[in-house]
Amino acid sequence: MSLLRGTPRPASPLPAAPKTAPQRDDRDAPRSLAFRNMEATIEVTGLRKRFGQTPALDGMTFTVEPGQVTGFVGPNGAGKSTTMRVILGLDAPDAGTALIGGHPYRTLRHPLSHVGSLLDAAALQPSRSARNHLLWLAHSQGLNAKRVDEVVDAAGLRAAIRRKAGGYSLGMRQRLGLAAAMLGDPPVLMLDEPFNGLDPEGIVWMRGFLRSLAAEGRAILVSSHLMSELQDTADHLVVVGRGTVIADARVADLIAAASADRITLRTAARSEAMGALAQAGATVAATGPDVLTISGISSERAVALLTANAIPFSEVSAHRATLEEAYMELTRDSVEFRAAQETQGAL
């Protein structure tokens, strides 16, 4: 119902428990020991991998915690997809480890019940129906058609599920891929560029879906090369460039740091205001025809200075940075990263 309409579903009654895994109710006897001991984390330590002469991963290290959405961002070619393939045991690293709840992926007995993943939404046999695609995956895990129907409904694909996957739009394939990732009801989800090809309504739906899954205590890693897609979605960011982690921080902290003590001032007398504030030691930048962004002094001091110099202004507010700005701020000093960007541009 609501998921089809693109409205985020309200968080489930279970409170989100960031940083620590919620206690699990073990009344039902689990079927495998490995499954019971599973924690909803991804731990990547010192991954290195070369493709020929090109280093794809260069000491990639980070941890994905349960109960939050971790954004995995960086330019194309920064090593995001390679890292995900290594985590899923598809590619072998030259060095380093990738563990799911403390275990290498390839040792998991019921992998889809530990990690749901979506690497490439286009990886489908075009002549097979979407439902049959989910069915063979379900059968490989000992799951039945009933479970397939559940994830189909959750992904909002019921109406189109009997159609051949070859006729699906990229957005529908993303939903189908998400349904496949949800088959085992996994505590860890790993999605590579899930926003690609989604229409605006789909993007809103995807955000809501991811947020609600995180609110249940699942660990979610979402890669993207566009920061704006992760706005209001990610709780935590792992920023990568050239195969290594540039920044690993909470989104709230990043935005606060980027906003810092900056003030936005709206005034008709822009040049007078700039002069007075600069004299007082502030750093002033004109960011619009009647807008100045000031840092280095408090807003009380700025108001006092303007009043004392009889400079008119219509608004003084604390500046709140966008995630995009935070990202730019973060990567500004990274010469290595800029070089990586240039390399990307040259390709």
Binding site: R9, S12, P22, R24, F35, R109, G142, N144, E150, D185
Partner: peptide
């Protein structure tokens, strides 16, 4: 959506694999 939106502990037990 009951099949998806579950408490963190997975509701769907893995089948025999």
């Amino acid at each position: 959506n009951a099949g998806i939106i579950t408490p963190y502990r997975p509701r769907v037990r893995p089948g025999h694999s």
